[in-house]
Design a binder for these strands. Structure first.
Lengths: 159, 159
DNA sequence: ACAGTAATTAGAATTATTCCAATTACAAGG
DNA sequence: CCTTGTAATTGGAATAATTCTAATTACTGT
C-alpha cells in the first residue's frame, strides 16, 4: 500500500470547506485546503508554526504569512477554533462540536473535553441581567494521569 | 476633605499582602504594596502598562520591569489573578473569590461573574477518568446591554 | 485574451513580555 | 552602626508571536 501523505481531503471535508468559503465569498484555494486537511489529519492542536512545517512538506513554497492568513480565514468561516492558553502561541482546533479544553501543565498538551449543550445553557444562566453571551470558553488546568503517547487519547473529539 | 490619592492600603489588605509575601519568603516592599493597592483601588482589570502609569503617579521612578515583576509576584502569592483574552495584553484582577469573566466584544471591557463552588465542582465532573483539574477558567464572550459608564457595574466582585 | 479582485509572498514592523547585567536596598549578625 | 549577603529594582537589549506592507501572482467572469 502506497502510503499517501498528501492529506487529500475526504469528500465530506472538502464540501464543508468549499461551502463555508463560498458562503463567505471566499475562494477555495490549494493552500486553504491543505491547511484544513492538515488540521483534520492530526487533530492535536498545532500552532501556526507547526502547521507551517507540516504543510511545507506538500507545498514547499508556502509562506508563514499565508499559514496565518489561511488559519484566520478558517476561523472566520467557523471551521476551526483558535485556542489560547496564557501567552503561549495560539493553537488551532478543527473540532466543531461544542467542547472545552484540558491543558496538561506537565506536557503542555491540550485535550478536548466534550461539553454538552445543556451544560452550556446552564452556565449562561450565571450571567446577570443585561449580559448576553454568544459563546463561552472553558479551560481546565491540571495534570493528566493518562500516559497517552501521542495526542488526544482520552477526551472526546471528532468534528 | 483632602482627596488622598496615595492609595494607602487598608490594614486588612496590608496584612493579607504581608502575610502572603512572608509565607513565600518574599519581602514586603513599597512597590509591591503600591501595585497591590492600585489594583484594589480600581478593580477594572488593568494591563501591566496601565498599572505602570497608575503607580508612576506615586513612585515616578518605578520601571515597567518592576511592574511586571511585582504583578508576577502577586500572582505567585495567590493574591491576584492574571486574565488572558486572545492575544491581548494580560490583565490583572485582585478578585480572589472564584469567578468567571465576561468579555464585552464591543468595549473590550471585562466583568467579573460570580461562579458558585458547586458549579465548579459540577464542571470538573465533565472530565474523563484520569484527568484531574486543579483550576478552571471560564470566559463568556458577548455584548452587554448595560451602559456602565466606568468599570464593573453589574457582575459580582469584592475580594 | 483582459480586467478586476483576491490570495500569496518575503520581509519589515509591532507588541507584549522576558532577560540581563549592574545597581540599590534591606535585614541580620557582629 | 558597619558589613555582608541576598532580594529587589532598573534601563535597555532581546525574544517571540503575530500583523502589516507593498509588491507579485492567480483566478473568475466577460
Amino acid at each position: 500500500m502506497a502510503t499517501r501523505h498528501n492529506h487529500a481531503l475526504p469528500r465530506a471535508a472538502k464540501d464543508l470547506l468549499d461551502g463555508a468559503l463560498a458562503r463567505h465569498g471566499l475562494r477555495g484555494t490549494r493552500h486553504r485546503e491543505l491547511i484544513f486537511g492538515s488540521l483534520l489529519a492530526r487533530r492535536d492542536h498545532p500552532t501556526a508554526e507547526e502547521v507551517f512545517v507540516r504543510v511545507k512538506a506538500m507545498a514547499p513554497t508556502i509562506s508563514l504569512a499565508t499559514v496565518y492568513n489561511c488559519l484566520e480565514t478558517l476561523v472566520q468561516c467557523g471551521l476551526v477554533r483558535a485556542v489560547n492558553h496564557e501567552r503561549d502561541a495560539t493553537r488551532y482546533c478543527p473540532n466543531l462540536s461544542e467542547h472545552a479544553h484540558f491543558h496538561d501543565r506537565r506536557t503542555g498538551r491540550i485535550y478536548d473535553v466534550d461539553l454538552p449543550e445543556d451544560v452550556v445553557e446552564r452556565l449562561k444562566e450565571l450571567l446577570p441581567e443585561g449580559y448576553e453571551a454568544d459563546s463561552l470558553e472553558l479551560n481546565f488546568h491540571g495534570r493528566s494521569a493518562v500516559k497517552s503517547k501521542e495526542t488526544v487519547g482520552a477526551a472526546a473529539a471528532s468534528a
